[in-house]
Structure formats: structure tokens, C-alpha cells
Amino acid sequence: MRVSSLTLRRVHKWIGLIIGIQLILWTLSGAVMSTLDHETVAGGPAATPEPPALPDRSAWPDVARRLGGGDVVRVALRPFLDGHVYEVWTSDGPKLFDVASGEPVSIDAALAQRVAIAGHGGAPRVRSVTPLAELELAVREHELPIWRIDFDDEGNSSFYVSGVDGRLLERRNDTWRTWDFFWMLHNMDYSARTSFNHPLIVLVGFAALWLAITGFWLLFRTAWRPDFRVLLRRFSKF
């Protein structure tokens, strides 16, 4: 079967007309994302502080007593700031205890700020420390409670620290914010920005495939020679 050039051209221009805007958004966002440095997008090089020495004294018996010796789901010991903590998960969620003193550690604004500064590496000025009332786009894959620490640095960084276990969850900056906006355009997920498996993008993607196929096909139906002549004439002027 031979498909006429006219048919190909018609299909090509009609698909182009219908999905043209999204196609421009795809190529624009793709180009921007390839240009933004992906390591900066990810937060830049992470600070790697020296691990603190293990404490001499253990308050484990106190911790066990505080928890009533009951059932636990997870038990961990991990470095935390300049010391270590026990992290014990009961059915109520995780609890932190200082290894040396056995005192419960709750992640307040001051501690969250120390975690963020330790993870920053530089010596930035802290602009503000706020507890999130609801999840923001920057931490859409995490759960509350979360502290946001805004820094007065080059990238206007915002670091997010878990209010539960004190872990540094995300390091966001202006480059990431730009990237994330274009990522939203690229995967057409204009609300949650979490999934690219939705019917709209599959439909438009399918149309785009046909646009590409007909466009590619048309390359073989093109009279290149006149264009060549024009090019040659242009160049011979110089």
C-alpha cells in the first residue's frame, strides 16, 4: 500500500495542530532539564561529617524500662549530630533516646535546625525554621511532621527534617524548583507531580508517536534538491 504524501502531510499537520502546545512544552522542558545541572538539582554535594565516637556509657536498661520492655518492631543505633541515639519502633511509631543518658529525644525546632546545618556543610545564615502544617511539593513523598529550614544562601535552599526521627529528608534549592516546574510540564501531571502514568499523557504520547512517524516518513517525500540549491547560493555569496 502506498500512502500519498498529501495524506501524510494532512495527518502530520492535524496532529500537530491538536497536540502542538504539549509538544512545545515537552521539547522546552526536556531542553531545560538537560541543561540544569542534575547534581545541583539533587541538592549539590552532601556534607560528610566525621562520625562521632561511640559513647562510653550506655543507658539501654533505662530505655528498656521506659518502654516497659514490650514488643518492638525495629531497633536501631545511629549517629545523630555529635552523639548517638537509639531508635526504637513500637506499634506507636519510632521513639528516639540519647544513648548515653537514656533521655527521650524529641525533634524540636532547635534540633531540626542543627540537623539541617550539619547537612549543609557551609556556614549559611538560617532565615527561618517552620513546622509544616501540610505537605509541600518539595516533600510530597514524605509524611508529616516535618520541619522546614530556610537558608539565606546562593540557591535559597530549604532543607526538610523529619519531626519523627530527625533525618534530613530533602535538600531543595532554586535549581530544583525550576527543574521541578519543568518536570511537571514534561510528565503532564499538573496537580500532584507524583505520577506519569495517567491516560492523558498516554493519549497525547500516542498522538506524538504518530506525529513523529509521519514526520519521519515525510523526510523521504521531500524534494531536498531545491533546498540544496538555495543553500549553495547563500554560501557562495560569502
Binding site: 561511640l54 559513647p55 550506655s58 539501654w60 536498661p61 528498656a64 518502654l67 520492655g69 514490650g70 514488643d71 518492638v72 518492631v73 531497633v75 536501631a76 543505633l77 548517638h84 537509639y86 526504637v88 544513648v99
Partner: peptide, 16 residues
């Protein structure tokens, strides 16, 4: 999720 009795497991610091 599996459960352990806190009284059964040793001090994690001893393990470290």
C-alpha cells in the same frame, strides 16, 4: 512486621 521483645535483645551499643 515482626516483633521482638525488648527484654530479649541485647544493647545495640554492645553490638556496635
Amino acid at each position: 512486621p515482626r516483633h521482638a521483645r525488648l527484654g530479649d535483645v541485647a544493647d545495640p551499643l554492645r553490638a556496635a
